[in-house]
Amino acid sequence: MAKRECGVVREMSDNKFKSSVLGASENKSFAMALPAVLWQGIFLYVPVVFIIGISFLKGLDGSVFKNITLGNYDTLMNSSYFITIYRSVVLAFSTALMCLILAYPTAYFLAIKVKKYKNLLFFLLILPFWINFLVKAYSWFFILDHNGFVNSFLIKIGLISTPFHILNTPIAVYIVMVFCYLPFMILPLYNSMAKIDKFLLEASSDLGATAGQTLWHITIPLSMAGITSGFFLVLIPSFGEFVIPTLLGGGKTMYVGSMISYFFLETKNVFLGSAFTCLSGLALIFVALSIYFVFNKIGKKNMGVK
């Protein structure tokens, strides 16, 4: 009996000991996270709250309450500004989709098929990260120009007689967007595919699956995490992309990024600009959530024979 009690006591003290250790480590890790949390809070969340607040104001003279209005949103809803949000959604989505289509075979080849020179090829793949974004985007100016590489090549081989008008069109914007964002898609895809056990692919074909069936039932579901994160890594920044549309679109076609810069820097209408920023943010959240929902569904559907 005495022995038993002893055991119980020791068990309790063990639990106590464990919980106190865990508690301490939780406190400590929160302390370690504090600088980043403060940074995010002061420089991200507080300004966002300000922008949301300003979007409901019509001026800064006198009392705040007198200035509250929904007029900014009303103006936007009834204007052609709204179409820029739609245009940016289309650009972001199609960029992400094209990046996925181009990146998937590349990542597949590199992660699963290549055996020799894997590291070298991988290095070449991430090399664009080392080059300044602006330089990468601007270099396309010379490729797509009237006297640029593409046009002079096509004329030389006799395919066309007068140069294509590519620069300063949405097509130029799209091409360069895909080029610049491609590595952001390849990396997460490569990471998720490199983790797939090669024996699973052999087992699939051993069980009678063709290469296409193995891709659909095994490789894609097991790389779904990479597809999702790559898609969002491209979708979200390309929605607000400012540099590429300005440089290669010639500023003629307006996107969300160029619109925001127009409100804040050119017309200096911070109230309308804030409302526009909020609306575009909402649109992005809505689009991202819908896509996430669809991806989740595809992922689940592939999880079994249903």
Binding site: D197, F199, A203, S205, D206, L207, G208, A209, G304, V305
Partner: peptide
Amino acid sequence: PIHKRRVNTVFQNYALFPHFNVFDNVAYS
């Protein structure tokens, strides 16, 4: 080609599909 052979393999590391349950693994072929 592998998928046309009436041969099946039990792998050393089993190579079970981690995203399927027991039923779906067995039902795969």
